[in-house]
Simulated scan of single mutants.
Amino acid sequence: MEKVMRLASDKGVVIFSKSSCCMCYAVTILFQELGVSPVKHEIDQDPEGREMEKALSRLGCNAPVPAVFIDGKLVGSTNEVMSLHLSGKLLPMLKPYQI
């Protein structure tokens, strides 16, 4: 849990992902199209990936990946990110991190 929280608060927009996950890719592309370069942590390529996945579940992420953090706070997975985007609430959250 400590590693996940440290990595999540390291940069403004952080995505915990798996390299073979199409939804992780879609969320990453969404952020890039909104002018944000998120930091991605591929948990399937991390030796502590299983522990990280469990920690993400304990933090309340329904699907273990993608797990999106903005400003060190868990936003959620694909459904939560897309809901925020469709309601117009995502862009203001990303404003400080746009390039």
Rank of each mutant, 00 (worst) to 15 (best):
V27N: 04
K18F: 05
F31I: 07
P38T: 09
V27F: 02
T28R: 11
C22S: 14
I43V: 06
E33Q: 15
Q32G: 05
P38A: 12
P38H: 14
K40W: 00
D44M: 08
I15A: 09
Q45T: 04
Q32W: 12
R50N: 02
G35N: 12
R50Y: 01
V14E: 03
I29Y: 04
S17I: 01
Q45V: 00
C24T: 05
K11G: 03
C22K: 10
P38W: 07
K11Y: 04
T28Y: 08
K40P: 00
S17V: 02
Y25C: 00
Q45S: 09
V39I: 01
K11S: 10
F16S: 04
M23L: 15
A26E: 11
V27M: 10
P38V: 08
T28P: 00
G12H: 09
V14Q: 04
S19V: 01
C24D: 05
S20E: 08
F31N: 05
G35D: 10
E48K: 11
E48Y: 08
V27K: 06
P47F: 13
V39A: 07
Y25H: 11
I15M: 09
V39N: 01
G12K: 12
R50E: 04
M23G: 00
M23W: 15
P38E: 11
I15S: 08
H41L: 01
L34S: 10
E48L: 04
C22M: 10
I43H: 02
E42K: 03
A26Q: 09
K40Y: 00
E33N: 10
S19F: 06
I43M: 03
E48C: 10
F16Q: 04
V27D: 03
V39Q: 05
D44A: 10
V13H: 08
D46L: 13
S19D: 01
V13M: 08
P47C: 13
K40V: 14
R50W: 01
T28E: 12
A26C: 03
P47A: 14
R50I: 04
F16M: 03
V27T: 12
G12V: 11
I43P: 03
L30Q: 03
V36P: 08
S37G: 06
D46A: 12
T28V: 00
M23R: 09
E48S: 12
H41S: 01
S17H: 02
G49M: 11
E48Q: 15
K18G: 08
R50A: 04
S37A: 15
C21S: 12
I43E: 02
Q32A: 14
S19W: 06
V27H: 02
G35Y: 14
I15N: 05
S19P: 00
C21D: 06
P47T: 09
H41T: 01
E33L: 09
A26H: 05
D46I: 07
L30W: 05
Q45H: 14
V13T: 07
L34K: 15
V14P: 01
C22L: 10
K40T: 11
L34V: 12
Q45E: 12
Q32S: 11
S20H: 14
G35E: 10
I43K: 04
M23Q: 11
Y25D: 00
L34R: 14
I15C: 07
A26W: 08
I43R: 03
K11N: 02
